[in-house]
Design a protein around this nucleic acid. Structure first.
Length: 464
DNA sequence: GGAACTCGCCAC
DNA sequence: AAACGTGGCGAGTTCC
């Protein structure tokens, strides 16, 4: 189903394969001794936690039910224990509806004391077995050589395997530190990450051309996430520096704006905003509940503003959603409908980068795939240009990886300024010149590690 | 004993 | 009217 409709698109993938191949051959340095040490350390920690839990009621019942075949990693066994033997009503079923769900969110809701310890064990095993173990297994002479593929995804994005280098933990501080501590630059070098800011939203703007969204991309004083936080949480005024408002802005961004762009709707958003971000329970809507605000709790704040129940909050989010699309981004809204109709008529969708999406698609897929793919192609084009220039000019610095909208460079310190300036120029200036359909300014953000320091030490660097 | 599947979780 | 996009991978499980 892959189809390039222009020579340029065809060449982008072919050059991309070569550049990604070079980065893979180059490889990324791993502290193998650390991986082994840390794995052993985590194993001891996991054993201790399991030993502590082994006297608990939960584990006793578990062993009684399964005897010699007891396996504390088994979701099937846990679901059987909780939902069949203990008779707990499952808050949620798995997607195939074969059994009650045992994912983190569901288990946490049950209010069983041992469950938190069990979840902690699972988290440590994930770090040990998915990341440290994979680094140690895949490394050759202290370097991993991940494969970047350009032929595997329906969107024409990339995928990476052996090991996957696109999902190393970053949001969870503890997991981030443990995993990224294993990743190093070459001796005497330093790791630098350059990522396109808001590239998917910017590329979407080039498709729908909504003037309000384009303004948002051009004017740094505009902040839709802050605006939405104000509307969703009924704030009179909002201050970006206030830590509570920062939390609420983040909630609006992750719990409303992004899901809306991916095609979600108010019922899910309301649930996520209240439970995950506001700390409120869905059923009860009592005073003194949820996030602590300067003048009381979030639940009190809503009640004071006339929202007295979860049902009323959901209705509020519905109105915010309606306004979001009908008043803020009506052109974007209309584009989605036209784009969907175009697909239904023609059976395929042409991307701005010269690729054609075909096959059977649902509405959200038809809208998201071309945007996602084109956004990645901005990165791919830049990656190729930087790679080819680095060869031509014989840099000591090299591209070693990419993560959808970011590149990872292994930089020779004396080339630091030149490398960053050059890469930034290619990413933000050369690309829009090559692709005139890009009608919003592009920006990059840099994260930099010290010389001979691991990836866990990266810090934001002002490109000026 | 391997292939294919489910479930869960990490990233963007 | 319907309702979150894209991946890789580990462990468990089931099937052949």
């Amino acid at each position: 189903m892959m189809q390039a409709t222009t020579k340029e698109a065809y060449e982008l993938l072919h050059k991309g394969v070569l550049s990604f191949g070079r980065a893979g051959v180059m490889g990324i340095r791993i502290d193998v001794e650390y991986c082994k040490r840390k794995k052993a350390h985590l194993t001891r920690k996991i054993d201790r936690l399991e030993k502590q839990l082994s006297d608990s009621e939960l584990f006793k019942e578990w062993r009684k039910a399964y005897g010699a075949s007891t396996n504390f990693n088994s979701g099937t066994q846990l679901a059987h224990l909780l939902y069949d033997l203990r008779g707990v009503v499952p808050p949620k079923l798995t997607s195939s509806e074969k059994q009650g769900s045992t994912d983190e969110k569901t288990l946490s809701q049950l209010g069983i004391p041992e469950i938190q310890d069990l979840l902690k064990i699972k988290q440590l095993k994930k770090i040990r077995d998915t990341y440290l173990e994979a680094f140690a297994r895949e490394q050759i002479g202290g370097y991993i050589h991940p494969f970047s593929n350009l032929h595997t995804t329906v969107t024409y994005r990339s995928s990476v395997d052996h090991p996957n280098f696109q999902n190393i933990p970053i949001r969870d501080e503890e997991a981030m530190k443990i995993c990224r501590r294993a990743v190093f630059p070459r001796p005497g070098h330093q790791l630098v990450e350059l990522d396109y800011s808001r590239i998917e939203v910017k590329v979407a703007s080039c498709y729908h051309k909504d003037p309000n969204m384009i303004a948002e991309m051009k004017d740094p004083s505009l902040d839709m996430h802050l605006d939405m936080a104000k509307e969703l949480f009924l704030l009179q005024s909002i201050n970006k520096k206030d830590p509570i408002h920062k939390t609420l802005r983040n909630a609006a961004k992750s719990g409303f704006v992004f899901p809306q762009f991916y095609g979600d709707y108010y019922v899910h958003c309301a649930d996520g905003l209240a439970c995950q971000w506001g700390g409120l329970s869905k059923k009860k809507w009592r005073r003194g509940e949820g996030l602590k605000m300067p003048l009381g709790y979030l639940s009190d704040h809503f009640i004071m503003n006339g929202i007295n129940s979860y049902a009323e909050f959901e209705e509020h989010v519905r109105k915010v959603e309606e306004k979001f699309w009908n008043v803020r981004f009506p052109v974007y809204r209309d584009w989605k409908e036209e784009w969907w109709e175009l697909y239904q008529k023609t059976g395929c969708l042409d991307m701005l980068t010269g690729f054609r999406c075909g096959g059977v698609m649902r509405k959200n897929e038809a809208i998201n795939r071309p945007i996602q793919g084109s956004a990645f192609h901005c990165l791919l084009w830049s990656f190729i240009e930087i790679d080819e220039l680095s060869l031509k000019e014989d840099w000591g610095s090299r591209l070693v990886g990419q993560i959808h909208d970011a590149i990872l460079l292994d930089v020779l310190p004396k080339e630091f300024d030149y490398t960053l300036e050059t890469a930034q120029r290619i990413m933000c200036e050369a690309l829009p010149k090559a692709w005139p359909w890009i009608i919003v300014p592009l920006e990059v953000e840099a994260d930099v590690c010290g010389v001979d320091q691991p990836w866990s030490t990266k810090e934001a660097y002002n490109l000026g």
